[in-house]
Lab assay of single mutants.
Amino acid sequence: GTEDLKEEAKKALKKGDKERAKRALKKAGLSEDQIKKFIKEVL
């Protein structure tokens, strides 16, 4: 589900894998702006 994808994105970001995080967030249905915001909040 969406929460799982967001968790996956957080883990990817902590490993420095932004591309993987972006893919997971796109799958979760987030827009580009939401993805940028999510990444900023996590990092």
Rank of each mutant, 00 (worst) to 15 (best):
G1M: 13
G1W: 13
G1L: 14
G1P: 11
T2Y: 12
T2N: 12
T2E: 12
T2P: 12
T2F: 14
E3P: 08
E3C: 09
E3T: 11
E3Y: 04
E3W: 03
E3S: 10
D4F: 11
D4T: 11
D4A: 14
D4N: 10
D4S: 13
L5R: 03
L5A: 08
L5H: 07
L5N: 04
L5G: 05
L5M: 07
L5Q: 05
L5Y: 11
K6H: 10
K6W: 15
K6M: 15
K6S: 04
K6I: 15
E7C: 07
E7I: 09
E7Y: 06
E7M: 10
E7A: 11
E8S: 06
E8K: 07
E8Y: 10
E8F: 10
A9Y: 03
A9R: 01
A9L: 05
A9G: 02
A9N: 00
A9W: 03
A9H: 01
A9F: 04
K10Y: 08
K10E: 07
K10R: 15
K10M: 11
K11F: 03
K11N: 12
K11C: 12
K11A: 13
K11R: 13
K11H: 10
K11Q: 13
A12H: 11
A12G: 02
A12L: 12
A12D: 05
A12N: 04
A12P: 01
L13H: 02
L13Y: 03
L13C: 06
L13G: 00
L13K: 01
L13D: 01
L13R: 01
L13F: 03
L13P: 01
L13T: 02
K14W: 08
K14M: 14
K14A: 14
K14G: 09
K14D: 06
K14F: 10
K14T: 08
K15W: 07
K15R: 12
K15M: 15
K15F: 09
K15P: 01
K15G: 11
K15N: 14
K15Q: 14
K15L: 14
G16E: 02
G16C: 09
G16A: 03
G16I: 01
G16D: 04
G16S: 02
D17T: 01
D17Y: 06
K18H: 15
K18S: 12
K18M: 15
K18N: 12
E19I: 08
E19F: 04
E19K: 07
E19N: 08
E19P: 06
E19D: 11
E19W: 05
R20F: 11
R20I: 08
R20P: 02
R20A: 15
R20N: 10
R20M: 12
R20L: 13
R20Q: 11
R20G: 15
A21R: 00
A21I: 04
A21N: 00
A21W: 03
A21Y: 01
A21L: 05
K22F: 09
K22P: 00
K22Q: 11
K22Y: 14
K22W: 12
K22D: 06
K22V: 15
K22S: 08
K22M: 14
K22N: 08
R23Q: 14
R23T: 11
R23P: 00
R23G: 08
R23A: 14
R23F: 04
A24F: 14
A24S: 06
A24M: 15
A24R: 02
L25A: 01
L25S: 00
L25Q: 00
L25I: 01
L25V: 00
L25K: 00
L25T: 00
L25P: 00
L25E: 00
K26N: 07
K26F: 05
K26W: 04
K26Y: 06
K26Q: 14
K26T: 11
K26C: 06
K26D: 07
K26M: 09
K27L: 13
K27D: 12
K27H: 06
K27T: 09
K27A: 13
K27M: 12
A28F: 05
A28C: 05
A28G: 03
A28K: 02
A28W: 03
A28P: 00
G29C: 02
G29D: 02
G29P: 00
G29H: 02
L30V: 02
L30S: 00
L30H: 01
L30T: 00
S31T: 13
S31M: 03
S31V: 02
S31Y: 02
S31Q: 04
E32W: 10
E32L: 07
E32F: 06
D33A: 11
D33S: 10
D33T: 08
D33Y: 05
D33M: 07
D33V: 08
D33K: 09
D33L: 07
D33G: 07
Q34I: 03
Q34A: 10
Q34E: 15
Q34D: 14
Q34L: 06
Q34N: 05
Q34Y: 05
Q34P: 00
Q34C: 05
I35D: 02
I35L: 05
I35N: 01
I35S: 02
I35Y: 02
I35R: 01
K36D: 15
K36A: 13
K36I: 14
K36P: 06
K36Q: 13
K36G: 08
K37A: 15
K37W: 06
K37N: 15
K37G: 13
K37V: 10
K37I: 14
K37E: 15
K37C: 09
F38I: 10
F38N: 03
F38H: 04
F38S: 03
F38R: 03
F38E: 04
I39Y: 05
I39L: 09
I39F: 12
K40F: 14
K40T: 13
K40S: 14
K40P: 04
K40I: 13
K40M: 14
E41H: 10
E41Q: 11
E41Y: 07
E41R: 08
E41F: 06
E41W: 08
E41I: 09
E41L: 09
V42R: 02
V42D: 03
V42K: 03
V42G: 04
V42A: 11
V42M: 11
L43T: 06
L43Q: 07
L43C: 12
L43P: 02
L43K: 04
L43V: 06
L43Y: 09
